[in-house]
């Protein structure tokens, strides 16, 4: 593991040259997987995550089915080689907790009532981890759900804030996460309803309010990129329809 840096902020810039309210670069690829109903590959700084969605599909065992709505299932998993020291493959307490809160981040937005007795499965694999993997996973999962055509009220966008050297900063990198004073992952909808909120570390209430506002601004930026990725993908695929739509619109105005 890397050493604790002496200072996190030098001349108003962070270790990687970012300002306090700046995100790491995000790269999004939609539908990289063939078998999944929807998928998304997302790079965020040095994080690399893959999300896949299956469903709505039959839920087994049957006694877990809900007669009034689909059951959401979320599995967050880290590849054994995604961190410096190899981790044992499979679920552990940390990944089980992250899976739970991530699932709950989506339950308010997915129209589960449309698909009684089914399961909607979301799988997130962290292939390379560098702080903020749960928020990266949620952002990728959000797009994978959209890619799978699952009806949703809103995309979910997530971002973490934290505190280093007494300053509230957006989107913690590895060193800031390991040795910083606080870490606050947040997920929200377009309507700015918070669907995931966790915190560890030490903040005054005033600092927390500031952190929450900063996290929301980060989520808004992430949302812009998510939206852009969807528009680019689905505009390209249906470019023919665009021309049709234009001629249709022309027809209407003549009447």
């Amino acid at each position: 593991m890397s050493e604790r840096p002496e200072r996190f902020i030098i001349d108003g810039k962070r270790l990687d040259g970012r300002s306090f309210d700046e995100l790491r670069p995000i790269k999004i690829e939609l539908s990289p997987l063939d078998r999944a109903d929807g998928s998304c590959y997302l790079e965020w700084g040095r994080n690399k995550v893959m999300a896949a969605v299956y469903g709505p599909r039959e839920l087994h065992p049957r006694h877990r089915q809900n007669m009034t709505r689909a059951v959401m299932q979320f599995r967050y998993n880290m590849a054994s080689f995604s961190v410096d020291d190899r981790i044992r493959p499979g679920h552990n307490r940390r990944s089980i907790e992250i899976s739970k809160v991530s699932r709950e981040a989506f339950e308010p937005v997915v129209f589960t009532k449309f698909f009684p007795k089914t399961a909607i499965d979301v799988f997130v694999e962290v292939l390379r981890a560098d702080a903020g993997t749960r928020t990266a996973g949620i952002n990728a999962a959000s797009l994978a759900l959209a890619d799978a055509g699952i009806p949703m009220r809103s995309l979910v966008s997530a971002c973490a804030v934290g505190k280093v050297d007494g300053e509230i900063v957006l989107d913690l990198m590895k060193e800031e996460d390991n040795y910083g004073e606080a870490d606050v992952p947040v997920a929200m909808t377009v309507g700015e309803e918070i669907t995931l909120l966790q915190m560890d570390g030490h903040l005054t209430p005033k600092e927390f309010y500031k952190a929450l506002e900063l996290a929301k601004s980060g989520c808004r930026q992430v949302y812009g990129l998510q939206r852009q990725a969807l528009v680019e993908k689905y505009n390209k695929d249906y470019s023919v329809d665009e021309d049709d739509a234009r001629s249709d619109a022309g027809g209407d105005s003549d009447e």
Binding site: L33, R35, Y54, R75, S80, F123, E125
Partner: peptide
């Protein structure tokens, strides 16, 4: 050597 057939890869 370890292989994982993770549920992401196939229904």
């Amino acid at each position: 050597t370890n292989a994982e057939l993770i549920p992401m890869a196939s229904p």
